[in-house]
Structures are given as C-alpha cells and as structure tokens.
Amino acid sequence: MAGADTVIFEEEFAKINAVCDRLRGEANALVVFIVDKNGQLISASGETEHLDTTSLASLTAGNVAATGGIAKLLKEKEFATQFHEGEKANIHIQIVGQRVILVVIFDTRSSLGLVRLRVRKASEELNKVFDSLVEKAKKPGAMSVLEEITDEDIENLFNE
C-alpha cells in the first residue's frame, strides 16, 4: 500500500493536545484542531461541543487538497497557509511539515496577526512531535493492534 498508516500513541497525543490548548489560549482563539491530510481529525481544543468536527476535518482536508491541486498547476510546491474571513468567525489553515493541517477558528477577540504569530510557534512544536511519532511507528510491534486482529473479530463486526 502507498504511504504509511498514521499512528498516534498516548504520549504524543498528550503533547499534541497540549500544543493545541496552549495555542488556543495564546492566540485567543475559539477552536484549534489538527487534521491529517486524509481528513482524519487528530486533536481538537476549545468550544467544540456545537461543532461537527468530523465534517470540519474532512472538508478542511478537501480544501487543502484542492488548494494543493491549484498550487501544482501553478508549479508551486504548496500554499501552506489559507485564511477565510467571515462576518463573525474567521478560519486560519496552516499545513505543518507537509503532513498535518493546523486549523484555528477565531473571532473579533483575536486578530490575524496574532494568530499567525502563534501558529508559527506551534507549528515548530508540532513538527517535533510528529517527527518522533514517525520514528516510533517504524519500530516493530508499534502497530500490534493490527497484528492481533483475528478473522473472528472481522466477522463479528457484522453480526451485531
């Protein structure tokens, strides 16, 4: 299969969540979330109870993929940053280390300049965490849950 599976372990998950929480505080943002490029939500911080984060994740990844398509046509590697301005809410989308997408939703209590500044710092931290994740996932036994799946498990999924 092409590409590697994305795996998140507890230690890194806690670090990623901590970066999101801190970024939300420092940027005065409403919501911060991280999505992988295939549309899977990795982490969310903030007022997410009324948000459909699964759909947001998928649409953000779709948006980033489409923008990446435009970049290719223009012979650009990527457009790493996107910003959408609404009447009440704004959304800042940043590709981190060419592998995950950092999304910040904010309102008038913050500003684009502040968000940009904080996102830059958070991106560096996230890069380190994802680097260590990649290394960890390569180690034997890292994906043990997959190795332990039995045929019976698979059958049972459909017998409920």
Binding site: D5, T6, I8, F9, E10, N38, G39, Q40, I42
Partner: peptide
Amino acid sequence: MSFINYSSREINCKI
C-alpha cells in the same frame, strides 16, 4: 492509509 489512535482507541479507514 488508516489512522490509528492508541489514546482514544480508534481505527479510522477511508473507503
């Protein structure tokens, strides 16, 4: 490319 989260104990797949 599946996404496995050991912390939230989820396996996500795309079809």
